[in-house]
């Protein structure tokens, strides 16, 4: 079977979710990947959406985080203050699954504005939503985002959600309980933070992707594992499960 780069990215993200994980899911690519994991190797994955639906089991991909199918199939539906205060803030959620408009070498995320001047932005983006506290309080964060030089920038224009700040000890300085980004999954491969410096390193390339492609798609001097691992291609099972989700 042939597959697209986006399908490879979604499959790689689904594989990163282990059975039984409690996962805080944003809409779009994270939701698609989480639902794919639930359809394949992790049927007991606990999907938590910020609308207050805990343990949602949608039979089709929701368009929004508040689609009726999420509330109808959830183990529990709670109000938004309770979601953030009782469930997210104390660290009950294992994985926070985020997207990004810009991301830098330390996994800091911008979803607020493009441009130097917050008051006069070049592009106004939707803003924070639940992301700053998801990035702070989940045990670990996985970012799923397409890798290109517009998104992978040498310094984000605005820190909406803290990754590893300026390096190794920055999260501890801010008294954050979660470990922050442990993996950035893209359409070209996978980046993980260096254990010492926390700088993102290209550890995996998807099949058919060259190292030059990844370097060119990154707006900073990209560190690369020697040699990078080639991701397993999507299996027939993974691809058909993904495609049936999208029907």
């Amino acid at each position: 079977m042939n597959w697209t780069a986006d399908e490879m990215m979604t499959v790689a993200a689904a594989r990163a979710l282990h059975p039984g994980t409690r996962c805080f899911v944003g809409i779009g690519l994270p939701s698609t990947a989480a639902n794919l994991a639930r359809r394949t190797h992790a049927p007991d994955l606990v999907l938590v959406y910020e609308s207050g639906t805990i343990g949602a089991k949608p039979d089709r991909l929701p368009l929004s985080i508040g689609d009726g199918v999420l509330a109808e199939t959830a183990d529990a539906v709670v109000g938004v203050p309770e979601m953030f205060n009782y469930w997210l803030q104390p660290g009950r959620i294992d994985i926070g699954f985020l997207g990004a408009a810009q991301i830098d070498r330390f996994g800091n995320i911008n979803t607020t504005v493009i441009g130097d001047d917050y008051r006069e932005p070049k592009v106004r983006l939707p803003g924070a939503g639940g992301a700053p506290e998801i990035a702070a309080s989940c045990s670990e964060v996985i970012v799923i985002v397409r890798q290109n030089s517009r998104t992978f920038v040498d310094g984000v224009d605005f820190v909406t959600s803290l990754g590893h700040g300026h390096g190794a000890s920055d999260r501890a300085r801010h008294n954050l309980r979660g470990a922050g980004p442990v993996m950035v999954i893209t359409d070209l491969g996978i980046l993980t933070p260096d254990p010492e410096t926390r700088e993102l390193t290209q550890t995996h390339l998807h099949p058919g992707v060259s190292l030059d492609q990844a370097v060119d798609a990154t707006g900073w001097n990209l560190r690369v594992a020697d040699p990078p691992v080639v991701t397993d291609p999507p299996s027939g099972t993974e691809l058909s499960a993904l495609r049936s989700l999208k029907e």
Binding site: A128, P132, V159, L162, H174
Partner: peptide
């Protein structure tokens, strides 16, 4: 952020002048 807004409403409903949360750190 959502957590901040939700807590601002909670404080308003509770008759308190402000709410406390773990939020916005490092942003």
């Amino acid at each position: 952020s959502h957590a901040g807004m939700a807590n601002r409403y909670v404080a308003g409903a509770s008759g308190l002048p402000f709410a406390v949360l773990r939020g916005y750190a490092g942003t």
